[in-house]
Design a binder for these strands. Sequence first.
DNA 1: GACTTTTAGTGAACGCGTTTACTAAATTAT
DNA 2: ATAATTTAGTAAACGCGTTCACTAAAAGTC
Lengths: 210, 210
Amino acid sequence: MISNPSKPTRRGRPPRSQKQAADSRERIINAARTLFAEEGYHGVSMRKIAALADCSPAALYKLFPGKRQLLLHIWGEIFAELIAGLQHCADSTEPADRLEAMCLTYLDFWLSRPDDYRAIFLIEDQPQSEDESYFVDSSGIQEGFQVLRQAVVDAQALGVLGDGDPDEKQSVLMCGMQGVAMNLITIPEYPWGDPEMIKRATVRALIAGL
Amino acid sequence: MISNPSKPTRRGRPPRSQKQAADSRERIINAARTLFAEEGYHGVSMRKIAALADCSPAALYKLFPGKRQLLLHIWGEIFAELIAGLQHCADSTEPADRLEAMCLTYLDFWLSRPDDYRAIFLIEDQPQSEDESYFVDSSGIQEGFQVLRQAVVDAQALGVLGDGDPDEKQSVLMCGMQGVAMNLITIPEYPWGDPEMIKRATVRALIAGL
DNA sequence: GACTTTTAGTGAACGCGTTTACTAAATTAT
DNA sequence: ATAATTTAGTAAACGCGTTCACTAAAAGTC
């Protein structure tokens, strides 16, 4: 028995249209954005978002699987800023210095926004329901980092970087930078030394050693 | 008016002796350790610890300023294991390979214990009262990492590492390794590539570039 | 003994993220 | 109309970390 797909007669109350659902999602995300901007990460709570969006806390869970998945949309905007900064850097530097400049730009971005860094990286993105995807899968981050990959390829062509898989070199670079940002931001009490020094020394060592 | 220091007559109920307080602390830490071992980080709650230590949740806050400061004692033991592993590595490798071997040992340690890594690094250590010190200040971690610093100095003497401030080079190494551990453990869904590759490539690049 | 001061420890509460049981609404089938 | 079915949305609850107001206990002072 094959039902007619043009009018799948279903019993029961119909679900809200995709547009309606998207509107609700956006209203909630806007509420969250306001709170996030006004009171920082710890000022955002599901109850406050619900109050600002004029619904019950439980209603949020009809549209988002949890607080983190809700806030991911805000963090997506932050990543977009980062990518834009990298793109600008790629467009305004000499090829020979480009990769190093982009790495320093990347680090300066997070070091100048430690609260955003903490909010994004210090809480894990674990999709609890199997139909929800990871942030990195759904946010276009990987596509955005193409600009960094291109800088790696260009650096290889110029002999700044050794030969080998550019993806591998990009991963190593991103790990190294993640470590600098992480240590300087979340363990500032450890005697790492001058942040400017550790930043430059790490980037230079990675580029020289790759 | 100078009071007699040998018998400073103080009104009011005397505080518990240091030994008594230490005993209570240990009883509580043992309860926490049991829960941590049996149910993992998320299985530990102040209420459960209190129930197992046979006191009220609020009583815990008389001896520890918070959950994190309570659990730091358990994490101190984990760090001791790490330091012991590094020491063993330093004692059993050829000087020329020692630094690289120790870095890989460091990384393997955390990569084989992702839950411990998350518990320790993904929650920030912010002393909320000014008389409480940071974990890194009070746990002997910095002293423990002397073994890594010595390996850096030895590597410099052997020409494996360039000249320059060994503390600076140690910081860069630790940042790089932190980034690898962080990315592989907390963002496993990103296409970093083979963990073994990224581990070795990062350590080699850092040592070659320093 | 009565009073004051200091500490130990508790019970109740706050706000949190999240889940559950439920009611109301909107549709088709009879 | 009535019943059945499906969805939207909520009120109440759970366990969490933490705080606060309070009581009980133990000491010195009068």
